[in-house]
Design a binder for these strands. Structure first.
Lengths: 209, 209
DNA sequence: GAATTTATTAGACACTTGCCTCATTGTCCG
DNA sequence: CGGACAATGAGGCAAGTGTCTAATAAATTC
């Protein structure tokens, strides 16, 4: 997003001898929006290039094939979301309840809970079903996300009837995912702030003292 | 499953004529399995016919087009799941807790919580994003499912700290959906009976007295 | 047993997609 | 400055898909 001269619009892809990262990143971003708007069926290599405003021949120049572009997009998305969540926790001070709330707010922040993004996410879930490489990325992300959640939940002060940690994490995780889906299916029915509130209420109930 | 003459089966005639309703139902069933195994991208009209063992021209004889086949499959699936859930509640006696447990067990029964079926379900969710007709089916199903859940949850005896009905329903529904997804992503990590137990524990906690 | 209906197949058409190859443009370095 | 080389475009080709039409064979009817 550096300022470029109007006539130098073409100079966007700075060419380094190594990796043309800008154009590449551009294609990755377009892939997400394409996946969200057209679904997995419409998000074809040519469609992505069309949307990105480049010729379809270019895809092959940066990625081995369209599937590989999808996979890399997925990997990047997972990485970004993990960083986003981890940062939110880290920025919420030392109180575990504040951290948990920060985590919820991060997940349901507008940046990550737009119906478009969730649609892309679900497209990847599906690809993970039928493709081994996507499944690996998905599994790795799940484990890491679960670990993050557990590290926060594990620090909450336990109440008299608090369930085993694994159960608590599973329930909280399920509520988050379920509300995420709900948000996806009907943005209006369950606004994001209500999702955060319901998540927190569920956690409080699990750790009530 | 109709009885065929042994010599007819042995000769493997290229065209085995079927009752319209049978063949139609056959195509609908194959569509689900195709969607599950190949994902939304692979579940093309021709692939479905291939898997069903009929020529691709036949699809048009029973359905307007492949999309229409998908839509009807979705409608049928929704209808069946609703009946399945409603029956489970009805067969659980009059105690609301028993009914709720019956509902959970129905949802996570092997018939409906196989990864294949959930995969098909998610494919439909995605189609609902980009297609109006699919969205209508999805919305209608959600409302009816929500109404069923609410009718059961609304009869539970309230505890001192029970949240508003709408919140309780939203949380329980979210946990169900979330665990469903979890089941889909990793069949091994969260077995069905554990899903049922977690759902029930969550409900008990909401209505603890 | 012939006539009619209809489930079913086969094939053709236009179109899209993924893969590939070659031409062109712009940039960098000697 | 001019060659080398990466970034990009354009187009061809085989394979797959959806739609349509015409030809077959099984079932039904008279």
């Amino acid at each position: 997003m550096t300022a470029t001269h109007p006539d130098a619009a073409q100079a966007k892809p700075r060419r380094t001898r190594q990796t043309p990262s800008v154009r590449r990143q551009d294609l990755l971003a377009v892939t997400v929006s394409c996946l969200a708007r057209l679904g997995p069926r419409g998000a074809t290599g040519r469609a992505i290039c069309r949307e990105a405003g480049v010729s379809h021949g270019l895809l092959r120049h940066y990625f081995r094939n369209p599937d590989n572009l999808l996979l890399e997009t997925y990997e990047q998305l997972c990485e970004q979301l993990l960083v986003w969540m981890t940062d939110a926790v880290a920025a919420s001070g030392d109180d575990p309840w504040a951290q948990l709330r920060g985590l919820f707010e991060a997940v349901f922040a507008a940046e990550w809970s737009s119906a478009d993004l969730i649609a892309a996410w679900m497209a990847f879930w599906q690809l993970a079903r039928s493709r081994e490489d996507f499944a690996e990325v998905s599994e790795s992300f799940n484990l890491r996300q679960r670990a993050l959640l557990q590290s926060v939940v594990g620090r909450l002060p336990q109440g008299p009837a608090t369930p085993p940690l694994a159960d608590a994490v599973a329930v909280i995780s399920a509520v988050m995912d379920g509300l995420w889906i709900e948000l996806f299916l009907s943005q209006a029915r369950t606004p994001a702030d209500r999702c955060v509130a319901l998540c927190e209420a569920t956690a409080r109930r699990l750790f009530a003292g």
